[in-house]
Design a binder for these strands. Structure first.
Lengths: 239, 239
DNA sequence: CGTGTCTTTGAAGCGAGTCAATCAGGGTGG
DNA sequence: CCACCCTGATTGACTCGCTTCAAAGACACG
């Protein structure tokens, strides 16, 4: 066994508290190691998979940043999520044995490949894994419902505030500063995710800067007034 | 064993081709029967569960029609789906051991109660069930992504067309006429689902009627020109 | 037959989209 | 090392689709 393969094992991965094995004990973790077949490198701009590709494996993001997007027959497309370290890609593909969205790396990335058939068989004899996997799928459903709420009933400022708060929370959980971040995606990608045009995203960033809520320098964002962002979400009756 | 309990068994349920046991053989079906604990009746307007309720069971709709809706802290709320016979309710609750949305019956309904712990243990020794359950969760994710596409990039007419096409397809799969239907939900609920105000929904229905695409009499809808509905989705370049 | 809920329709206003021009960086090649 | 180019970001002016506010109509139910 080669040394760099040891490194990739779940049992020694620093993401184990965020990824599939949340809450696992030491013994559980070593059982998981059998599951992760290999690492895979994806360069910025490249696709990990495309819609229509046959489904073999799920992928856990180790490093880097992804977007997933679906597209309709008439060429419309929609960013459905942004994934960072510890998050799973490919859950949509189980339903039809084919991927239903594209997963594109927004920066150079590394993923762990998890063959789905092995995940199924291992989780049959390993209750914690089964439970953990179900929770992750369910969490994705809950997340999607939150996005539906956002897209269905929020105004531009509220959408961007919700987006930034979500991003900073997830970054904070990974040990990054919750007040200073670098966006990995373009204004257009943010807009697609939030159901806005890129100009509206840009204008809203500028508005936040004027109001002293953010400092915006291209993709570098500093949160100056976290309460103001929260306030945008907790009081729709602000008008 | 009482006669009416025999009737509720998956092995003799006429929904078995739409529900959890899709593609199961005779033997598989009888193994499933152990899973469904009981039936439950929900009256029109009542909740099957509320957001925050502790999670015990999933529910399969036997008869009737439900809506699920999430709400944010500030009282905004969003219909996240409409469920009919054979569809599962409660998948969102697995992630946090609590329901995250309300499930409200839009007409008198009957559901099968599926204790989640039993579903987990049975699916550990029963590959087909495990696989089927995973597919159902994954399908929910794919559906949500479709709704996100709708909410993020479609205009009012396109949203309503997509909604109606989806509804008629699901009704057709259950043996109902694909051209004539009775809406179980109000304009406001449709609007909430589609990210529109109820007046806009009403106006769009009227527009479709003027154009000869639909015949609309309150909640009674007849589809006159199916192609026109499809055309609204397949050519955004119609302008 | 009245009452409340849901639906329809109109008129006016506004938020976000569209179109277009300019600006800022990052990378590349001379 | 710098000028250039290309992509992405910003900003402005105008337009349009949807929302808002308001009133009237239709239906279901007691």
């Amino acid at each position: 066994m080669k040394l760099n393969e040891l490194k990739v094992a779940c049992s020694s991965c620093n993401l184990r508290e965020l990824c599939l094995p949340v809450g696992f004990g030491r013994d559980d973790l070593t059982r998981l190691d059998a599951l992760v077949a290999s690492r895979k490198t994806v360069k910025r701009g490249d696709a990990l998979f495309h819609a229509g590709d046959p489904f073999q494996s799920l992928y856990a993001v180790r490093t880097g940043f992804f977007k997933t997007c679906v597209s309709s027959e008439d060429g419309r497309d929609q960013v459905t999520g942004f994934q960072m370290a510890g998050e799973l890609l490919g859950l949509d593909a189980i339903s039809q044995d084919r991927h239903t969205c594209d997963a594109i790396a927004l920066e150079d990335a590394q993923v762990c490949q998890i063959p789905y058939s092995q995940l199924e068989s291992l989780s049959r004899e390993f209750t914690e894994l089964q439970h953990s996997f179900h929770k992750i799928m369910s969490r994705e459903i809950v997340r999607d419902h939150g996005v539906m709420l956002l897209l269905g009933s929020m105004r531009a400022e509220e959408r961007l505030a919700a987006f930034l708060l979500n991003l900073t929370q997830r970054l904070a959980a990974r040990g990054f500063s919750p007040t200073s971040l670098v966006l990995r995606m373009t204004r257009e990608e943010i807009g697609s995710y939030l159901g806005l045009k890129l100009e509206t995203v840009s204008r809203t960033f500028s508005k936040f800067q004027e109001d002293g809520v953010l400092e915006v320098k291209q993709r570098h964002i500093r949160v100056l007034d976290l309460d103001a962002l929260h306030a945008l979400l907790n009081s729709s009756s602000a008008c």
